[in-house]
Design a protein around this nucleic acid. Sequence first.
DNA 1: CTGAAAGCGCTTACAG
DNA 2: CTGAAAGCGCTTACAG
Lengths: 348, 348
Amino acid sequence: MSSGSNQPNRKPTINDVASQAGVSKKTVSRVINGSQGLSVTTRERVEQAILALGYVPNPQARALALGRNFAIVLLHDNPNAQTVQNFERGILDAIRHSELALMVRPVDRRSPAMLDDVAAFLQQQRPIGAIILPPISERDEIGALCRSMGVRFVRVGSAALDDDDHSVTSTDRIAVTEACRLLIAMGHRRIGFVRGPQGFRSAAERELGFHAAMEAAGLPVPPDYSAQGDYRFESGRSAGRLLLSLDPRPTAIFASNDEMAAGVMHAAFERNLQIPRDLSLVGFDDSPTATHVWPSLTTVRWPIRDMGVLAAEKLVGDFLPSRRFSSDFVHLPSELVERASIAPPPVA
Amino acid sequence: MSSGSNQPNRKPTINDVASQAGVSKKTVSRVINGSQGLSVTTRERVEQAILALGYVPNPQARALALGRNFAIVLLHDNPNAQTVQNFERGILDAIRHSELALMVRPVDRRSPAMLDDVAAFLQQQRPIGAIILPPISERDEIGALCRSMGVRFVRVGSAALDDDDHSVTSTDRIAVTEACRLLIAMGHRRIGFVRGPQGFRSAAERELGFHAAMEAAGLPVPPDYSAQGDYRFESGRSAGRLLLSLDPRPTAIFASNDEMAAGVMHAAFERNLQIPRDLSLVGFDDSPTATHVWPSLTTVRWPIRDMGVLAAEKLVGDFLPSRRFSSDFVHLPSELVERASIAPPPVA
DNA sequence: CTGAAAGCGCTTACAG
DNA sequence: CTGAAAGCGCTTACAG
C-alpha cells in the first residue's frame, strides 16, 4: 500500500501546454473542449503541444470546476446477473474510446429510502448521466428525480417509459406474439403461460404479446393455463408442475424468461415427459441457460447489449468519437431464436 | 438533457460547517478525515454542525486536492458474465456504507497495449485501489504496474498470486481433489478430465487437484482421457465427444467449469447416454447453469462473492465502517456441492 | 491542539 | 478570436 513516489517527469498540466504553445490556458481549455471560434493556427499549435507533451486533462480538476464527473452511472436492481453484465458490456462498448468512466450502483427496490439513496448518490458523484435498468427504470419518480437534479438519464425497458430522448426500448410484445404464432402454426391449441413478476412492465408486455397471439387465432385462454412466476428458476418449476397437472395438459408452454423455462423443463422431466415430443417450450432472454439445457431452448433474444450501446449513445453521444445508432433510434427488436425445444403437438 | 437549475439551498461546503462550528476549515477537514489529536469538545462541535447542515464532503474536491479518487476500480478480462457480476456484488456489499464508488474497467488480454491502457486509466482516474480478476490478475506485470504507480491492489485467483496483503485466493486444487475422491469412492476408475484454457492458473490448479486424487488412489491418468477446453460451452461439447468415443469410455468426467460440463452433457445425450446412470459428471463454479440443467449438476462452489467482499476489505478496509473478514485472511474455500449428476458406475 | 496561506488543475464569466 | 482574474471545495505543509 505504498503511496506514489514523486515521479521525475510529473504529468503535464494545462499550464505546460499553454506555455509550450505560447497561449493562455483558457485557450488550451477551449481546444480540449472543442469550443467554436478559434483560429485554425492557434488550434493546431495547441494540438501539437498536447501531442508533444502527451497531455491528458485531469478528470478530477475538470469535475471540480464543472461540478460534473466525467462518468456515467448504471443504476439497477435487476436480479439477473447475466442481464446486468450484458448491459454493462454494451455501455462499455459505447464509451470505450471516450474520456468517460462507468460507475455501477445497485439499488434496493424494496427499500423506502431507495429514491433518497439515489438522490444522495447523484448529488455526491455528479455523473454526466445515468442509465437506469428495469425494473426500477419503470418508476416515473426516478425520471423526475434526474430531471430535477439536472442529471441526464435514459430509462431502459420493454416498452416506452419516457419520451424518445429518455428511453430505449425492446419490442417484447411483438416478439412474444410472433413466438406464440409459431407454436400455433405448428398445431398447438392448448398453450400454457408462465407469467413474470407482478408489477414488472416486461412481464406485462410479454403477457400482452401472448394474449394477442391467442386472440388473433381465436384460441381460448383459460385462467388456469396461466401460472404466476417471478423470473426465477424455482418459480418456473412450481408453475410447470401446476400447468402439467392440468387435464388436458398444455402441449406447449411459453415461459416469460429462460430461467423459468428451465424450471418448467425440470417439472416436465419429473413427470417423464419428453421435450419437445410431449411438450414444446419457449423462453425469453436467450441467456446462456438457453443453450446449456438439453434440448436447447427456443427463446426470444433480448437485445440487451445493443440496448446498452444505444442507451449510452443516447445519453452521452456528444462525448463519443463515433456512434453506431442514429440519435433518434429508440426501439431495438427482440427476436425469436429457434432451437430444439419446440415441435408439433403429439397426435392425441 | 436540461442542466441543473440553481437550487435555492445549495449544498453546504466545508466553509459553512467551519463558520457554523466556529472553527477553521482545516479543523473540519481533520474531523472528516478522522485525524488524531483533536480536543473532544472541538470534534463534537464540528460533528454537530455537520449533522445540522447535512454536510457531505464533495468527492471531486477531495479527489483534486488529494490526487486520489474515492473509488476503487474492478479490472477484469473475464469471459464469464456471471463470474464478473458476482465479484461486483461482493465488492459492492463491502463498500456499501462507505464513501467509495466502484468503477468497472474491462481490458483486452490479447491486446499488446493492455498494460499501457491500464496504466493510462489508473493515471487518469487515480482510484484508491484496484481489484484485479483472473485471468489478468495472474500476470505479475500488472502487480508491478500498480506498485510503481502507488495504486493499491488486490489480485484474485485460484492460488496465491502475490503476498498476503495483495491476494485473495480460493482453494480450487483441494476442492477438485475432494470431488474426484468422491467419484473414486463411488467406484469410478476411468475418470475423464476436461481442461480449462492453457495459461490460466485456475485451469492448472484444477488439473493438479485431479491428478492428486488419481495418484493418491493409484489410478492411471492416460493422456487421452484428458481433453483440452477453453471454459466455454462449445469446447466442453467437443471435449465430451472426444472422451465419450474412447473405448473403454470413462464412467465419470470432471469438467473444469460448469459451462463445459453442460457441453459434456450434450455430448452424452447425443450418444443416448443417461446421466448419471451411464456417466457421472462434475463441474466447477456452481453457476446458474449447474442448477438449470437436468439432471442438476454436482459442482464445486467457487466463493466468488465472498472473494469480492474480502478483496474489497483487504484493499480499502481503512475506509469501511465495518468488515466481515479479518485483515490477515487470504484463502476462501471452494466447496463441493452434491447434486444429481453423479452415481456409482454402471456394473460392466 | 488549532489556523492562515497556498495550491491541486481545471472552467466560467467578463473584458477587450 | 484570445486572456487575466477569480473560483470550484477540498488538503498539505508550515507555524505557533
